[in-house]
Amino acid sequence: MSVNEKAAPAAGPATNPTTATPAPEGWEPKIIGFACNWCTYAGADLAGTSRIQYPPNIRVIRVPCSGRINPQFVVRAFQRGADGVLVAGCHPGDCHYSTGNYFARRRYLLAKRFIEYLGVEPERLQVRWISGSEGQKFADTVRELTEKLRALGPQRRLRETL
């Protein structure tokens, strides 16, 4: 099963609380991206050097490897009010550190279930493999995720009111 695949449709309104209230005026989805230095960060750089435009909703945090991305960081992003999170690294088999993305793949299969269990729509967490030559894929991924989040509305389930 791919990381982004969903086993069963989300059941009932209890697991889908955030769309209950409409989004405030001028709301823009906020996406935190975790990108490995060797593939996805380079892919995002390539989108830049190729001037491929995409929505300005994502902010990327550079990490050495997708295997470095602790699900704790994802949860923290949702707690701090992120509407979506993108976890991205090298394609399986291409990891700069040989095996990091394999661990990431297994870990995020579970993590998606976990945030679903916490009551956040699992579509808000996307895991993608984007290589250093896939600037277009990076841009497409951001566009797709931004549109998805626009449809879902603001993420309020885990958001802490400070």
Binding site: R59, I61, V63, R68, N70, F73
Partner: peptide, 17 residues
Amino acid sequence: VLGFTNEHILAEVDALC
């Protein structure tokens, strides 16, 4: 990992949110 500690990354998440 020095340079990419948990504290670093959590601070980055906080800053961006």
